Amino acid sequence: MKKIKIALAVVVALFISGCGSKIPFKAQEPLADAALVYVYVIESKGDIESASYQSYSIRINGKRVGERLKAGEYTTLDIKPNPAKLSATKDQIVEKSLDLDLKAGETYYLKIRDNLERGAFAFEQVSKDVGAKEITTTGVAGTMIEDIDNTLTELVGTGKTQESQVVETRKTAAPAPTPVSKVDELEKAYKLKEKGALSDEEFNTLKSQIISK
């Protein structure tokens, strides 16, 4: 029975990995008036079957933000420069929290380590050197390419000032649109940024909107 369970877990893992790919990690610069916080889950070296089902929700001062994180995924948060409590909740049951005194223009790395003794996990702040190295092996949290979400059809920028850029997404009533995943939306936004159509601030705003859907 154990061999059958392991074999099924391997098949599931292979199926998931073959369904699509996530956008690889891309370093960002913090906004002048916010702290940039990376939260990531390192790949588990434990039971592959249990690891495939484990996920984490992230909260700031008790309010949930962003996508649920799984092994090998990361998310970015632009947070006001104030003391804040960030927490990670495993499978909506076990919660670990960190109290941080966030500073504007600073970057923070928060790591989740799973499959510790008796199924426990750790949620900890790590140094910039360690975090910057480990997070490069992760991808953007969210659905695979085949997962259906919204279609990014138009970008609208307003207020052409350095202090404020507003980016909105709109959906048109085109007949039978082809669904596009969050990964595709983020890729389109990143290409627009590379072409100079979006500023760094516009890209960060749009990225946050896409991830938080």
Results as ranks from 00 to 15, higher is better:
residue 198 L to G: 02
residue 68 R to L: 08
residue 211 I to S: 09
residue 128 K to I: 10
residue 169 T to I: 11
residue 182 K to P: 00
residue 36 L to M: 12
residue 98 L to V: 12
residue 184 D to F: 01
residue 122 A to N: 14
residue 108 Y to D: 10
residue 98 L to N: 10
residue 11 V to P: 00
residue 164 S to E: 15
residue 148 I to Q: 15
residue 31 L to Y: 05
residue 71 A to P: 00
residue 196 G to Q: 07
residue 35 A to G: 07
residue 157 G to K: 01
residue 85 K to V: 07
residue 74 Y to N: 09
residue 185 E to N: 11
residue 177 P to H: 14
residue 23 I to E: 15
residue 95 E to Q: 09
residue 35 A to W: 08
residue 127 S to R: 14
residue 80 K to N: 13
residue 187 E to N: 13
residue 1 M to L: 06
residue 202 E to M: 11
residue 202 E to G: 03
residue 32 A to Q: 13
residue 175 P to W: 15
residue 161 T to S: 05
residue 33 D to R: 12
residue 83 P to M: 06
residue 202 E to W: 15
residue 12 V to W: 11
residue 81 P to R: 08
residue 202 E to K: 06
residue 105 G to Y: 12
residue 4 I to H: 12
residue 205 T to W: 07
residue 210 I to V: 12
residue 103 K to P: 02
residue 154 E to A: 07
residue 64 R to N: 11
residue 37 V to A: 09
residue 136 T to Y: 09
residue 77 L to H: 04
residue 206 L to R: 11
residue 141 A to N: 02
residue 39 V to H: 15
residue 197 A to F: 07
residue 41 V to H: 15
residue 212 S to I: 10
residue 193 K to A: 04
residue 136 T to K: 15
residue 105 G to A: 04
residue 76 T to H: 01
residue 96 K to N: 14
residue 211 I to F: 00
residue 188 K to P: 00
residue 57 S to V: 05
residue 154 E to V: 03
residue 17 S to R: 12
residue 204 N to Y: 02
residue 151 T to P: 02
residue 52 S to A: 04
residue 66 G to L: 01
residue 124 E to F: 09
residue 175 P to G: 12
residue 206 L to H: 11
residue 50 S to H: 12
residue 212 S to L: 01
residue 205 T to S: 05
residue 86 L to P: 00
residue 183 V to A: 11
residue 98 L to M: 08
residue 137 T to F: 10
residue 65 V to E: 08
residue 146 E to P: 01
residue 184 D to W: 04
residue 90 K to R: 15
residue 94 V to Q: 12
residue 41 V to C: 13
residue 40 Y to N: 02
residue 97 S to I: 10
residue 60 I to F: 02
residue 27 A to R: 14
residue 98 L to W: 09
residue 184 D to G: 04
residue 167 V to G: 00
residue 71 A to T: 12
residue 13 A to M: 05
residue 58 I to W: 06
residue 63 K to T: 11
residue 30 P to M: 04
residue 107 T to N: 03
residue 142 G to A: 00
residue 96 K to H: 06
residue 202 E to S: 11
residue 197 A to S: 10
residue 109 Y to L: 00
residue 158 T to K: 14
residue 142 G to T: 01
residue 2 K to L: 10
residue 199 S to N: 02
residue 62 G to M: 07
residue 52 S to M: 03
residue 113 R to V: 06
residue 203 F to V: 07
residue 87 S to V: 03
residue 183 V to C: 05
residue 35 A to R: 09
residue 211 I to C: 04
residue 45 K to T: 15
residue 131 G to K: 13
residue 167 V to A: 00
residue 15 F to W: 13
residue 189 A to C: 01
residue 131 G to I: 08
residue 96 K to W: 03
residue 141 A to D: 02
residue 149 D to S: 08
residue 193 K to D: 10
residue 65 V to H: 13
residue 67 E to D: 09
residue 140 V to H: 14
residue 211 I to H: 05
residue 149 D to K: 14
residue 48 I to Q: 09
residue 159 G to C: 04
